[in-house]
């Protein structure tokens, strides 16, 4: 049984549609990378898991189940219990996610409860300098602050940790350290991980499975190696081929022309069709349903032919 199950979720903001029927499953203990470019809806999906959406967001359809509980239909007390016991969140801006008026140790104690061993929790995220607990958030570097945020999110050993681009605001050297901490803590606690990122190769290196988002839907979902190595959706193929590091010496990469769509309502067909080299008439008018290609679940009318 899935720990997290998102079914046909539709989320609307005032004038734009952020999620247009997204499906996602995360099994207990699984590490899933949710990959998409800005505007693909991945942050909305990540926040929807804990019902942490901004006030202007409206759920137009679908549901989110965490450990079998419908997140959007829970009473406030049930929702708080779910967030406290089963879910952990780490966001992009590490310093902004901590209370600026409170020392780090005091904030951790607030999460852990009185008499908890703060230094042990800080050591788990490789912050063994005792000064860290006495520091205020603005005195920490971005990498240190993010590790404190990870320690807080993992303090209760949640069943699912949602990490929304946790390293986007950090320098590359620190990125690896923070990710190492996240993955090793999650592995120790048996926590499932949903890691949101726009970097497909980086996600493929660490995750079991990858879900690729485009236009508010998960367009491809499958084992990490398969999705990166033999993508079944044309968009995934384009994404995998567009990293500068993927180019051979002297070769020129040709990125997909155009820009990701901004939806105002349900997409009439496949949202990628206007930019897709394989698109046929049908792609513009008929919403693709899920098909199974090798090990992947794909939303594409021509999924079988991508590999051909």
């Amino acid at each position: 049984m899935s720990l997290l199950s998102v079914r046909n979720l539709v989320i609307d903001y005032a004038e734009t549609r952020a999620l247009d029927g997204a499906d996602l499953d995360v099994a207990p203990g699984e590490k899933v990378g949710l990959v998409g470019e800005s505007g693909s809806g991945k942050s909305t999906l990540g926040s929807a898991v804990g019902r942490l959406l901004p006030r202007t967001a409206r759920r137009t359809g679908g549901e989110v189940l965490v450990a079998g509980e419908p997140v959007f239909d829970l009473p406030p007390a049930g929702l708080r219990r779910l967030r406290r016991r089963q879910l952990g969140f780490v966001f992009q801006d590490p310093i902004g996610s901590l209370d600026p008026t409170m020392r780090v140790g005091a904030q951790l104690r607030l999460v852990l409860g009185r008499g908890a061993d703060v230094s042990m929790h800080l050591e788990r995220v490789r912050l063994d300098d005792p000064r860290v607990a006495r520091a205020y958030p603005h005195q920490l570097s971005g990498g240190m602050a993010q590790r404190v945020a990870v320690a807080m999110a993992m303090a209760t050993s949640p069943e699912l940790l949602v990490a929304d681009e946790p390293t986007a605001a950090l320098d590359s050297q620190v990125r690896e350290e923070v990710l190492n901490v996240v993955f090793s803590l999650a592995a120790d606690a048996g926590t499932s991980l949903l890691w949101l990122s726009h970097d497909l190769p980086a996600v493929a290196r660490r995750c079991d499975r990858i879900a690729v988002m485009y236009g508010g839907r998960v367009v491809e979902h499958g084992p990490a190696r398969e999705v990166l190595g033999k993508p079944a959706h044309p968009y995934t193929a384009a994404l995998a081929g567009s990293a500068p590091a993927a180019a051979a010496h002297g070769a020129r990469l040709e990125p997909v022309p155009g820009r990701p769509p901004v939806l105002t309502g349900p997409s009439p067909g496949c949202a990628f069709a206007p930019r897709c080299a394989l698109a046929v008439d049908r792609c513009h008018h008929e919403r693709p349903g899920p098909v199974r290609v090798r090990h992947q679940d794909v939303l594409c009318h021509r999924a079988g032919e991508v590999t051909a």
Partner: peptide, 14 residues
């Protein structure tokens, strides 16, 4: 920038 946009800009610079 997003990866696919990075390539667009890098191509432009070249």
């Amino acid at each position: 920038l997003d990866v696919s946009v990075q390539v667009q800009i890098l191509n432009l610079i070249r």
